[in-house]
Design a protein around this nucleic acid. Sequence first.
DNA 1: CCGATCACGTA
DNA 2: AACGTACGTGATCGAA
Length: 875
Amino acid sequence: MKKLILIDGNSIAYRAFFALPLLNNDKGVYTNAVYGFTTMLLKIIQEEKPSHMLVAFDAGKTTFRHKTYEEYKGGRQKTPPELSEQFPLIRELLDAFNIKRFELDNYEADDIIGTLSKEAEKEKWEVKVVSGDKDLLQLVSDYVTVVLTKKGITNVESYDEALIDEKYGIKPNQIIDMKGLMGDSSDNIPGVPGVGEKTALKLLKQFGTIENVLDSVDDVSGKKLKEKLIENKEQALMSKELATIFTEVPYNLTLDELKFGEYDEEKVVSLFKELEFKSLVDQFDTGVSAAEKELEELSFDVVEEVKEEHLATPAAMVVEVLDENYHQADIAGFALVHEKGRYFIPTETALRSDLFVEWAKDETKKKWLLDAKRGVVVLGWKDVLLDGVDFDLLMASYLLDPSHSSHDLSDIATRKGAKSIQADEAVYGKGAKRKVPETGVLAEHLVRKANVIYELKEQMEEELKKNEQFKLFKDLEMPLSVVLGRMETEGVKVDIDQLKAMGEDLASRLAELEKHIHEHAGVSFNINSPKQLGEVLFEKLGLPVIKKTKTGYSTSADVLEKLAEDHEIIRHILHYRQLGKLNSTYIEGLVKVTHKDTSKIHTRFNQALTQTGRLSSTDPNLQNIPIRLEEGRKIRKAFIPSEEGWKILAADYSQIELRVLAHIAQDEKLITAFKEDMDIHTKTAMDVFHVSEEDVTSMMRRSAKAVNFGIVYGISDYGLSQSLGITRKEAAKFIERYLASYPNVAEYMERIIEEARENGYVSTLLNRRRYLPELTSRNFNQRSFAERTAMNTPIQGTAADIIKKAMVEMALRLEEANLKSRLLLQVHDELIFEVPPEEVDKMMKIVPEVMENAVELAVPLKVDISAGDTWYDAK
DNA sequence: CCGATCACGTA
DNA sequence: AACGTACGTGATCGAA
């Protein structure tokens, strides 16, 4: 027997929205209604196992009922935008499930449902109507059941004729009479004033219909009621009409078209992932589809000896390394997929084959990878200089949307609708349990990965082109990954003995400080534990609590500084913290990762992580080596050239972010200031405080500097007040004066937010993108954050674009000029090289030239450069 | 053996 | 009501 489920889409979405807290995914898109809708849908499918389904939605604002009664549904709250924005997602969800959805101008979802339920009834189908609206009870019949939500979303009650009789003592077709009499405030149906459910039901039991009531109004008991009925006769009849579901909606569907059955599980899972419905993803991923995935066959060969035929190009290539840190790591195996076939090549087979090695090194043989830098570095350690990398799926995915937290191949595959594959974690295990699986499993997994890369290349490039990001991808990020790979492999030489000596010095000073602190406190405790420290300071010593964290007292440096006058112990704690940080993070940390034989450190630059386009550095992080305080700065003395007599050369952009701001905002005053190479903070102070250069005090300059920082970060009065230690009001006044002095900057800030709201994203000079869905959030904090991000990202991102371009250009120049100098590190706005003595003069010219001319802006770019025997001395 | 939290280093 | 942008690492703590 056929079973049709008709769902009132709007009603269920509303119910779900109000029943659940406002969830959102990591992009800030609200998803609670979608989630509730989904659980409801899944429950229905599971329990009812329908053969046919349809979800009806209300179409426009006005319906035929408004002709009868203009005020119909008047006074209703506007749909909250947090809900409106979820309707497209619900539609997407239904499409993924291959469930028909329907809406029609001039009619409500009720009418569509009514019409189709009558239609199905004629065919003797079993019909279930799902809604939160009691009006629909009028459709109940021998064939039609109405399922109403009770509480929450999945708590429901099924109404058949018997239950309606039990609850109301009337027949389904009398529901409209009931509504006519009592009205419905949510639809703004007036009914008869003074008549509620009780009276309405009493009347209907006696008379059957409104018409009969009115005809026999004399028989109605109660004088008042009688008067009301007579007085509101027309209104009662009209109310009944409004409550009556119209069952002859013109529709162009056949019942057969509502068939429900097969749908694309991968599409569903992919959508769930996007929405971050983790529990549902698990339910689906490990359930049916995973089993089916296993069955989907993919043929491939295991190569025993590499031959020409295995090396056709272009080829998708997998160089598998299980360690997250790929330096000097073992290769688990290779996979190649190209026109001629799919191959797994065991590591030894590949590396001992001259044919393979030559092919890898051949620039003209095009290779497509996921994470090209990883491949380049890993093979580099085996003295195989991988070349001809023509496509990097990781970079493509990152550029298209940097916000995705994972650019794991299985995630990309799911997002982009490619053949799904198992996640690495599922194949290899995680954490301590991670290991190379048996060869058969490994081979198949690698081939599948290569296959997905092969499958996605064209599509990803198309998407990049559509976004006008192809040049950024191909001419900047791809070449940069090779440059970075070389930097990582080269590594930075460290004077390990010096590090250790500094460590010993620190250790003894720390022991001394610890003793003092314990004496002052009167107890021995772990100073490194904020919890214990808090107890000592705020309970035992009774110092005033300045700030709390969600777990207890805050003992952060800015809090402690405020307490410095109150107790001698504070000074010691701050000093202990400072030295402790240096010792554990920078001495012990660096010693741990310095290679025994070479005394070199090989960081990894993550090129596909930050939301702004900057690089990051891990294992170790060489982008946060101390410099501000002399004590910490000395760490840099341990960073030395890798060859005798060479120098370390450091070149940094001066005020690159403010220059970028001047360019983007096209602010004449700022542009002129930079053209004249003025001290920008002094200049800002002059403009904000309306004084001449001589009259700028150091206090004024300090304030101006903080405002300039604030502007770049996306200013807020609160943030500025914190950094300057002034009130919010004063900070707000500062900002106001700044923006008045630089009207184009003010205009930029407004424009960029406006633009971002319209486009959904902001862009940098070289078309890097960042999506900001939270800009429309109703949550003040989320929205404010998105607004600051919209202001900051084009600035920080453009600065990142510029230095990346300089790096690629610099690598080219070094090669062309046959120089031995090597680029070692990048720290956001500076480049660190090691340089043989005879090249120092040349490099002092070339580096600034390349960096300053990386792009052409409305302002000049300025680079400061210096050389020394260590990183410390290159200042 | 992990994940969360705090604190703190850089641009 | 709670907040300046972008990161990574180490220590602690409480749970698996």
